[in-house]
């Protein structure tokens, strides 16, 4: 088994996929760092002060103004009210919601990357894991060795898990290291607020508490990893089922993008919550943003994802071990 995983790693490294992913992350982080930097600067100019309290106050006023508009859709109104209450809470408790620093940047980057960017990176590795062997024809050599088929697939899956972990770690590390150049490397101990419970339009603040940022980051990382594993496993399954890599990638990409779109419009289509792609924004639950569909909770999302994960694994292994190879 060890040998087989070593083989898969050798092929993965020779294809230089991980380096490409590293570069993509690096470039993106630099762009976002610059954007963030610009935003901070602009805010400073607008308010004529460095004081975040004034900035937050201004945000709250902005939000209130938007809420006052008649053309506001109901769903939007609810969401805005939620974030307004949250902002008010930050202000009342003297907590800077965007304490600048590389740690905060990393947290925000991960939270924004969880539902599209990270899954895309994972796809680069996962979607050709099996289908490339098919299209190169090397599958014939692989399956005529004295090794059972399930072991071969398992070695590929273990390699996928390893690369998923590497990708998540590299993303976190790069965004910390690169953004730190501009924002400084502080911010590990900054308090982050969590525990908002949403009951309809009301924010239940009874569970709200402060968590040190590094703990919060760890939670975020865990959730990002979980999402990455689930998305990776689904692409892996497609890679087993669909012989052509581009077709598999296309299907996965369509699913992910439709998830991003659905997130904005499904609030009245309740059964959409069983789609995996609507459940990817796990970090939103702990940072206290309203979920796309009422009644979705961290637990329900995690369970939904795990069910998809298990089904994908079962399908992959059954198909791979039974299929005739032509």
């Amino acid at each position: 088994m060890n040998n087989l995983v070593q083989n898969e790693m050798m092929k993965l490294l020779a294809k230089k996929r991980l380096i490409i992913i590293g570069l993509i992350v690096g470039i993106l982080v630099l762009m976002f760092t610059y954007a963030q930097y610009k935003q901070v600067e602009e805010q400073r100019e607008k308010l004529g002060t460095d004081d975040w309290r004034a900035a937050l106050q201004q945000q709250i006023i902005d939000t209130q103004n938007r809420l006052g508009s008649n053309r506001m859709l109901d769903e939007w109104r609810e969401q805005l009210q939620v974030s307004l209450k949250q902002q008010q809470y930050y202000l009342d408790h003297d907590i800077n919601p965007s304490e600048p620093g590389a740690a905060t940047f990393t947290r925000m980057f991960l939270e924004n990357a969880i539902d599209l960017f990270i899954p895309l990176l994972i796809m680069i590795v996962a979607s050709d894991m099996v289908s490339s062997e098919n299209s190169q024809g090397t599958i014939k050599l692989l399956l005529t060795r004295p090794v059972e088929r399930w072991k071969i697939l398992l070695s590929k899956y273990v390699t996928l898990l390893l690369s998923v972990s590497i990708i998540v770690a590299v993303t976190a590390l790069l965004s910390y290291l690169l953004s730190g150049i501009v924002f400084g490397y502080q911010g590990w101990g900054a308090p982050v607020i969590t525990g908002f419970e949403l009951k309809g339009a009301d924010v239940d603040v009874s569970q709200v508490r402060l968590v040190e940022q590094w703990k919060f980051l760890l939670m975020d990382l865990g959730l990002v990893w979980l999402v990455a594993v689930v998305v990776g496993t689904l692409s892996f399954m497609l890679s087993v089922l669909v012989r052509s890599t581009p077709a598999g990638m296309g299907i996965m990409l369509a699913a992910l993008i439709s998830g991003a779109i659905l997130n904005n419009m499904v609030s009245s289509w309740e059964s959409a919550k069983y789609f995996f792609m609507v459940n990817l924004k796990l970090t939103a639950y702990i940072s206290g943003t309203a979920p796309p569909i009422e009644g979705m909770t961290l637990l329900s999302s995690v369970i939904t994802l795990l069910v998809w994960w298990a089904l994908a694994l079962i399908v992959s292994f059954t198909v791979f071990t039974r299929r005739d190879v032509y």
């Binding site: 040998n3 087989l4 070593q6 083989n7 050798m10 092929k11 020779a14 294809k15 190169q136 024809g137 090397t138 014939k140 050599l141 692989l142 005529t144 060795r145 004295p146 090794v147």
Partner: peptide, 25 residues
């Protein structure tokens, strides 16, 4: 066996290809 053309990994060296299959034996 060789089934049809010997399809090997083009991005690996000949030696690494052999190593790959040797590890499976």
């Amino acid at each position: 066996c060789i089934v049809e053309n010997p399809e090997l990994y083009p991005f690996l060296s000949g030696w690494d290809n052999l190593l790959h299959f040797a590890r499976m034996l």
